Computed example of a mutant assay.
Amino acid sequence: MIPMSDLQAQYKSIRREVEQAVIEVLASGQYVLGREVEAFEEEFAAFCGSKHGIAVNSGTSALHLALLAADIGPGDEVITTPLTFVATASAIVSVGAIPVFVDIDPLTLTLDPVKVEAAITERTRAILPVHLYGQMADMDPLRLLAHRFGLVIVEDACQAHGAEYFGRRAGSIGMAGCFSFYPGKNLGACGEGGFVTTNSDAAAERIRRLRDWGQLERYHHVEKGFNYRMDAIQGAILRIKLRYLEGWTETRRALGQYYGQQLAGVPGIDLPLEAEGRRHVYHVFAIRLPERDALASRLGKAGIQTGLHYPVPVHLQHAYADLGYRRGDFPEAEAAATEVLSLPIYPELSFAKAREVADCVADRARVHA
């Protein structure tokens, strides 16, 4: 079996460093926040090119706190994409705001700036682009719209650690950037974890307060907050992994290019596009084809695991039926949801195995072309 990802292989490659870091945390007796988390905050913020970094317990918490720091609240509208993990919309709802979906660019599968302006109303307060699959959304047009209409941009960068847009890192362009360190991410914890980047002193101060019960100092709560703190063990592990992230990213990019070369010209398959000026970090390698489910089944029988990211867009999820959207409202996102298939890609995947995957995809695609 060739898996979608292999966390055990990654662990084995850095086992001694990780285990030593964990032992040191256990010996310290400091298990929540603390020195390791503070050091990771400085290092990952610098990696992203941001002034401040605040570590939290999940990517969803990061989104929640970023929206609160932007003063998004009940009745406000936040424009985002329906082709994303449900946490994007959930964070908007959690602050009492209303997700307003806009269709995607069919080439990049990210929020289409051309369609955003038509969705802006007097209640719109923010734009929340999702850097999907490892590629950043088209940020310059979105920034112009935000400036023109007085809106805040919060980046959902949960799949885009180290991705770039004309030389700027994910998480450094909007008022805040939000990251997930779920184990399968390009930078993954051994458990849950999240992060907010921002260049705003005021936003950073408030997010730090909100993640720890709204405390200005111990037992002095100036606003209602949350228990969104990062565990010290996760901070220590992420510090180790961050040292390897650039190398892992370059391997992902090389594998992505290799897949592209091997699958170029295969009938019926559209390959992921790395848009001009962007650095795609290939959180997933998502191809498109009309017979997606049939190909996934054939690859599974051949011992190749694939993934679906995401087969049901958020506006068609039962949990969000109350928003009033219907099938056909966002045709590009709906089409992508039925056609996108993620192939195995991770730094420990050998090029021989990648060749095996590509050959299998090409053979089975051509048979049914």
Rank of each mutant, 00 (worst) to 15 (best):
L273T: 15
A46V: 12
T84M: 13
L295G: 02
E41W: 13
P313N: 10
R288G: 04
F85D: 14
R15Q: 04
V32L: 12
I304V: 02
L144Y: 08
V357N: 04
E41K: 06
V18Y: 12
I92C: 00
R168W: 01
H318P: 15
A45W: 13
L187S: 12
S50P: 01
V340A: 15
A69V: 03
E276H: 09
S94G: 05
G191H: 14
V152F: 04
L263M: 10
I304S: 01
D212E: 13
R326Y: 01
T121M: 02
L187M: 13
I173R: 11
E334C: 14
G247H: 13
G225Q: 12
T88I: 03
Y182T: 04
P313I: 06
T80F: 13
A66P: 15
E155H: 00
E332W: 10
G162T: 00
G247A: 14
G268H: 14
K301S: 09
V281E: 02
G303M: 07
V130Y: 04
R125T: 01
I92T: 00
G324T: 01
H309V: 10
S13W: 04
F181S: 05
R243G: 11
A45R: 09
F285P: 02
R327L: 02
V56C: 15
V367T: 07
D140Q: 14
I14Q: 14
P82K: 03
L210V: 00
E332R: 11
V340E: 15
G277S: 05
L271T: 13
G328W: 00
I98T: 07
P74D: 15
F166W: 12
H52Q: 03
A296V: 07
A302I: 07
L289V: 00
V86Q: 06
Q10Y: 02
M1Y: 02
S28Y: 14
M175P: 10
G29R: 11
G194E: 09
F195T: 07
E36D: 12
I98G: 09
I173Q: 09
G188M: 15
A69L: 03
L271R: 04
G184D: 10
D105M: 04
I233V: 14
V357M: 09
H147M: 05
K301A: 12
Q10K: 01
P183F: 05
I120D: 02
N57M: 15
Y310L: 09
K301V: 11
C48E: 10
V22E: 13
A296R: 15
G194S: 07
E246L: 13
V18D: 07
V361W: 07
A160P: 01
E19R: 10
I120E: 11
A203S: 10
L145F: 00
E276R: 14
S350F: 03
G265E: 08
V116D: 01
G247Q: 15
R209K: 06
T197A: 08
N227M: 13
T251D: 04
R239G: 12
G29F: 15
T108W: 01
N57P: 07
T110A: 06
Q261W: 11
